[in-house]
Write a protein that binds this DNA or RNA. Structure first.
Lengths: 226, 226
DNA sequence: GCCGGCATTAAGGCTGCATTGACGGCAAAT
DNA sequence: ATTTGCCGTCAATGCAGCCTTAATGCCGGC
């Protein structure tokens, strides 16, 4: 789950970013409207959290630019308390939800989860491939009933693969969804993490689920051939 | 247990806040209706104690706003007036209990405990994880029958962790539930208190119950790795 | 069979998070 | 006024997880 946070107040930005990272999100932070818009248009986010009071380019402007670009990424507006008229205006401009500062992180999280769930493709809370099971709520992974401990990166990678079983993901797509911007350059980082996953998820079992598609990428599936 | 007290009379506010803190509640105090409403909407309380005679925004108004927001937090009304008609009106507006001033602190406490007990999820009075036992009534903690002395903060933290065994709590969530509003900014206070708890709860025993989930948070569980 | 390129894997350095002990401030108790 | 104990801060240390690098293995084309 990759997410963009556009917020100029350091305290709020750090607070939210830290909380989301603990929830295993890959979080990019933009400190003003301009770079926020740049990043939103350059990358493919699963969620945008947008403050309205921003230097350089107002949040309202960023919102309408993103929508003009016709992307359907969920956008959650974050702002100081203000008039309901404003609220309606922003909903019409394409915001999906609205939260006034100050807010409790728990509430933000609830709203985010609900936003992600009601996407175009219904988001399952439990993903299953053969005996492998990933619970998005508790973030626990099991295979044949036995718990498997994963690090944050390993978990995010597995979640991404399992979000579309049998679909082949290229290394580029994987990097764009699982890693955040702090990452650049072409390395074999994906291959390495596939290795880590295999060590925990496939190695102890006879049936291998993670498949390499030469020249293309990786996918997760129960059928060996296909 | 986090609780919001909305009361403008300093004497009463201090009296109640002190009493509740002695009972190990994390107490936020609002001195007028407006900030009371702000805080109620911003945070996630387990209980709200509301005076009716308030500057800026009446308690009645605060009550109906909270209910309009559709939260089910228990609300206890606190007021000088004793008219039965008023009382009924407020019950209809969503109050859960009603206490007229002056009152004995002991009585307030009894009503609070009964309110908390009849929450949507039946509240267990004794929490257990392996040999560790926390009694919410006497606020005593034992492990393998031996009493463990905890300070208020340590107790609150342990209670929170034990309220959902095996669930991982992020530092952000822990701060929101165990500390009160006076707290903000990024510190390692949670880590420090986890240390204190471990010193008393885990260090003297071979089986460790408090587990760190790196990059995410902490949880309490009997299973070590699995 | 040979070669080039891609995939796999092991090993290691680095970074930042987690851990821990010590310290000063504060409030309650004596 | 002094003491005691709790709270929150800070900084030193250690270590886990992240990413890189490079050696090796495998596959397909010629």
């Amino acid at each position: 789950m990759r997410c963009l946070l556009i917020e100029d107040e350091n305290k709020v930005a750090d607070f939210v970013a830290r909380g989301l990272r603990a929830e295993r999100f890959a979080v990019d932070v933009a400190r003003d409207g301009e770079s926020g818009w740049d990043m939103a248009s350059a990358n493919d986010y699963d969620l945008v959290i947008l403050d309205l009071m921003l230097p350089k380019l107002s949040g309202t402007e960023v919102l309408s630019r993103i929508r003009r670009k016709n992307t359907s990424v969920p956008i959650l507006i974050l702002t100081a308390r203000d008039a309901t008229a404003e609220k309606v205006r922003h909903f019409e401009a394409g915001a999906d939800d609205y939260l006034t500062k100050p807010f409790a992180f728990a509430e933000l999280l609830v709203r985010i989860k609900s936003l992600l769930r009601r996407g175009p493709v219904a988001r399952e809370n439990v993903l299953r491939v053969d005996g492998l099971e990933l619970d998005r709520l508790t973030q626990q992974v099991k295979r044949d009933g036995r718990r498997i401990e994963l690090t944050s990166k390993e978990y995010s990678l597995l979640e991404y693969l399992m979000s579309h079983p049998a679909r082949v993901f290229s290394r580029t797509m994987i990097i764009e969804h699982v890693w955040d911007q702090s990452f650049e350059g072409l390395t074999n980082i994906v291959d390495v993490y596939i290795r880590h996953l295999r060590a925990k998820v496939d190695d102890p079992f006879p049936q291998k689920l993670i498949r390499t598609v030469r020249g293309v990428g990786y996918c997760i599936t129960e059928e060996p051939g296909t």
